[in-house]
């Protein structure tokens, strides 16, 4: 099953994951990480630890993983790319919002990583709409 890490400034990731679980119930393999108080090196190390802690830890089988970032060009995006931006089993996507995470949980068992990323990016974009008159 595809895992995900929501990696953000402050408590955005923690709150997003909390709200997803409030809506859908407890979710396995959806975790968060804040950049608060961490140097770029430490942030990279934390992402590396999360990757290694996957269900296939110790085995040879790669676990497809997604890393959701709040802000393109920030320390989370830099650290995630430096850690695993060249790893084909990891997809890094910026601009995380609630619709994307709900889509992730809903679709992750029926898609491969690339297909899931396409669905989620589309869903994220579609969820940004001006409402009202």
């Amino acid at each position: 099953m595809i895992r995900a890490l929501v990696m953000t400034h402050g408590r955005i990731g923690q709150e997003l994951v909390g709200v997803v679980e409030m809506i859908l119930g407890p979710i396995e393999g959806l975790e968060f990480l804040s950049n608060h108080g961490l140097s770029g090196d430490d942030l990279q190390e934390k992402v590396g630890q999360w990757l290694k802690a996957g269900p296939a830890a110790g085995g040879d089988e790669a676990v497809p993983s997604m890393i959701f970032i709040d802000d393109f060009g920030g320390s989370c995006g830099v650290a995630a790319q430096l850690c695993c931006g060249q790893n084909r089993d990891v997809a890094i996507v910026s601009g995380v919002n609630l619709a994307m995470l709900l889509g992730f949980v809903t679709w992750r068992e029926d898609s491969d990583l690339d297909g899931l990323v396409r669905q989620i990016v589309q869903k994220g974009r579609e969820s940004i709409v001006r409402l009202g008159t």
Binding site: H9, G40, D71, G73, G74, S75, V78
Partner: peptide, 11 residues
Amino acid sequence: DDRLIHGQVTA
């Protein structure tokens, strides 16, 4: 800045 290029710099 040990994060070098990041939000505090660019934004």
